[in-house]
Design a protein around this nucleic acid. Structure first.
Lengths: 335, 335
DNA sequence: AATCGAAATGTTATCGATGTCATTTTTCGC
DNA sequence: GCGAAAAATGACATCGATAACATTTCGATT
């Protein structure tokens, strides 16, 4: 049974490496080395000191190391934390990215400091070793200003033309292509793309989709403003009312749009996928449990977060780093 | 036009207070005081030093202060950053809370360190001045362990019986009451509550709702497992198929449920609100732009975040702090 | 057994800001 | 205009960990 020495100590002032050193009968630098797994210390003494540290409930003082090292071992992440019009409700997505980022950076010994555009000039952000930007859509000028500070910078989103900062994003073009490939395999002839192509990412999906179809089918584009169930329902309902509007496949820019579309089709007694095949985007939780289970393009957001973090670590360590797009996977279900 | 001295300096080693002191012809402690708005320094010299600091692009060294002060001036926030079954899609809600927390803490000079349950025993979290827990549902034993560390602790959620930690949450009971009051004012007689009452927060809403009705109407409870549009649609569709099931009001535990309900009613040509009145919960963005605009119980999540942060700051400063529930507001629209 | 070199450990100085106490400057009453 | 109190400023030590350099210990080779 372990002693409760450590608990008893809690009230007292915090232990330092020097205290441990005295207890172990060594110098404090040896303690430092032991706790950092330095090869300059015997496996034996390392072990001795580590167990001692545990017993005594030693807590490493981050500030002291940071001061000495001239680094903060922290990365600031800029997130939009208020609901944004246009992508309502459907968005646990920044959270998933954050999950990946946090996991990777924390494991590497960095802390993740959350911030927003408005708070960027506060000391903790200014003092961070790097900056990760999670925007939706374009960043442009804001990024340019940030680059001038020389702080390592990584951005989530779609790569833009003439920029030289590191971008990590989901390959929307390939997402569109994978949807097209499925429709080709099914021999669909008259297709509908459903989504606001003013949106940069949606634009990419649409372009990849059309290019991959390569004229094997007609593609009619409908551009609802929102990404919601409602918008999908209404768009397809309206389309079905027009006589002569016949189609056998729908590729939607979000799962909610796709679900709305399916509901609209069902109301007109069109069967999915027999009459019309439908593919959604995002593979949100809920797609799989929808009735019928929705075929959807999966984005690896958590992996995206991990990748953002890895790029950042690379930049901090001065390694060569390049932008990268993540693959997508078409999750084939029953639509 | 401002000089670019500061830009020129960037490449060099960072400025310290001592450097500023030399430039200003004072001692470094005076610089320290000036930048902290200490009353021990003349308004004049303070101004002089501040402008100098700006010109030179001085950056405060957080680590040095933290070491000296024996504090980290950081608060760790524990969030579940993977999608959780049961509350799919519908959740930008931790983000809104985070927004409020970040705003308040950062403004108060603290940094917000993001973390997860798995990463709690890493140094940055261990060294934080406090811990905010954003869970959904119960915390129980986990909280108890944390309390033993003596670290200030604030939790988001519903207050539980025999606990003594600080809780901030939305007053679900009052949310239910406000819905009831509206139905009473409208003279509705046969009501439906739509939501999974196994969920602690939903349970509260339902209880408040029924208590406030005080027998003025019958309340039939339907408990879909999910909070989705789909679930709402299916639940109400099924109910409408049963003959004899007549009702003139629906109170749903989420906006999506309410929207699904409305769609189901519309399919049976029941008019909202003439035949059936519907009230949702959360007032998600999208509720207002729904057709028809949805009446919903608004939760002040951002304010919730701010309040969490304020309680935390209070705890850190040793002030007496109590748990608190936030009010809700019934946003009356057209349903 | 003596010597050399590698391995292990120790000593000292340092990172930048701030509390404590000492010192200088200013203010104000008579 | 002098002295005492108040206001403003400064010198020094300090927080805890680590890099650079110094020293000791140990092992192997001849």
């Amino acid at each position: 049974m372990p002693s409760n020495k450590s608990v008893a100590r809690k009230a007292e002032t915090a232990l330092t490496m020097e205290d441990l050193a005295k207890l172990a009968g060594v110098s404090k630098i040896t303690v430092s080395r032991a706790l950092r797994d330095s090869p300059l210390v015997t496996a034996e003494t390392r072990q001795k000191i580590r167990t001692l540290a545990n017993e005594q409930g030693y807590r490493f003082n981050v500030s002291a190391r940071n001061l000495r090292m001239g680094r903060s071992y922290s990365v600031a992440v800029v997130v939009e934390m208020t609901p944004v019009r246009g992508r309502p409700m459907s968005d646990p997505y920044p959270l998933e990215l954050l999950g990946g980022i946090t996991q990777e950076l924390t494991t590497a010994g960095y802390s993740v400091v959350l911030t927003s555009k408005q708070l960027m000039n506060t000391a903790p952000v200014q003092g961070a070793d790097g900056l990760i930007l999670l925007g939706q859509g374009s960043h442009g000028e804001a990024v340019r200003t940030l680059q001038q500070t020389g702080m390592p910078l990584v951005v989530w989103g779609a790569p833009e033309a003439d920029t030289d900062y590191i971008v990590v994003g989901s390959d929307n073009r390939k997402g569109g292509i994978s949807a097209a490939e499925r429709f080709i395999a099914q021999g669909r002839q008259k297709l509908v793309f459903l989504g606001d192509v003013d949106h940069a990412e949606v634009q990419e999906r649409c372009a990849g989709f059309i290019d991959a179809m390569g004229g094997r089918a007609t593609v009619h584009i409908i551009r609802p403003k929102a990404f919601t169930f409602e918008a999908g329902f209404d768009s397809i309902s309206a389309l079905l009312k027009k006589k002569g509007a016949i189609f056998d496949g729908v590729f939607a820019a979000s799962d909610l749009l796709a679900m709305g579309a399916i509901r609209a089709l069902a109301e007109k007694n069109l069967r999915v996928p027999e009459n019309v095949s439908v593919i959604g985007y995002d593979d949100t939780p809920g797609a799989a449990s929808f009735v019928p289970p929705l075929t959807s393009v999966h984005q690896y957001l958590r992996d995206g977060g991990v990748l953002l973090a890895k790029k950042m670590l690379g930049l901090i360590e001065g390694q060569p780093v390049a932008s990268e797009m993540l693959p997508t996977t078409l999750m084939v279900r029953q639509t």
